[in-house]
């Protein structure tokens, strides 16, 4: 798999995801500065976590206007894959790659801890390393992760299997107590209509190595490698 990671001013999980990708693919991914206008030939573009442009105006709003994002949108429109993690999810939404919006957390707090996720759709190149219904532990670290969409959009996401991950309790039960940010329908990650763009608030790259205290995030990267083998 040929992977590339876009680096924006204020990205801070770019290195983490590059390490996770290198472990999965055996070679370092391309690091692409946001001022670039052309992407190399890639199977996967990752929009990494962080605080691009200091979250000015709205989280992800400025980065979505970066020169490289035209090429990223074209990459997605060509059916190639894009993974947006945390700030990358916010950027993907602001760039129109995914529907809805990410609001300030309902509890107003910056939430930085491990959460449990239930795999809702394991039939995608991103999630085929899991089984549907698997409960995995992945960290979150965000202030604006409260997923919002109008009722029609939420119904479409549900009906079309486009909710990839939901927040849940350790036993897999969904519900308010397991939802760290007030997201509608406990949504932690969604797919676009075509299924080639995934955005999620939790950080699989932060638990993708035993040295980090867990490996529940690793199957996402190994599954992507298998998908593009």
């Amino acid at each position: 798999m040929k992977a590339g990671v876009i680096v924006f001013p204020g990205s801070n999980c770019d290195r983490d995801v590059m390490v996770a990708l290198e472990q999965a693919t055996g070679r370092p991914p391309a690091a692409i500065w946001h001022r670039e206008t052309v992407l190399p030939d890639l199977d996967l573009v990752v929009l990494p976590g962080g605080f691009s442009y200091g979250d000015y105006l709205r989280a992800g709003a400025m980065a979505a206007q970066s020169p490289i994002m035209r090429a990223v949108v074209a990459h997605a429109e060509a059916g190639r894959h894009v993974l947006g993690i945390c700030n990358g999810f916010q950027i993907a939404i602001e760039a129109g790659l995914l529907p809805g919006a990410l609001l300030r957390n309902a509890g107003l707090h910056f939430v930085c801890r491990d959460v449990w996720l239930r795999v809702e759709n394991a039939a995608t190149p991103f999630t085929r390393g899991y089984r549907g219904g698997d409960v995995i532990r992945v960290p979150v670290a965000h202030h604006d992760g409260n997923y919002f969409a109008d009722p029609e959009t939420l119904a479409r996401l549900r009906g079309e299997g486009r909710v990839a991950f939901r927040y849940c309790a350790a036993d897999g039960d969904a519900g308010e107590r397991a939802n760290p940010n007030g997201s509608a329908d406990d949504i932690a990650g969604i797919l676009n209509e075509r299924g080639n763009v995934l955005g999620l608030m939790p950080h699989p790259e932060r638990l993708a190595d035993p040295a980090l205290g867990g490996t529940d995030g690793r199957p996402m990267f190994t599954a992507l490698v298998e998908s593009f083998a």
Binding site: L57, A61, G100, A101, F148, A149
Partner: peptide, 8 residues
């Protein structure tokens, strides 16, 4: 195009 997110 930028100043407002008309979804919200």
């Amino acid at each position: 195009r930028l100043l407002a997110n008309t979804v919200i």
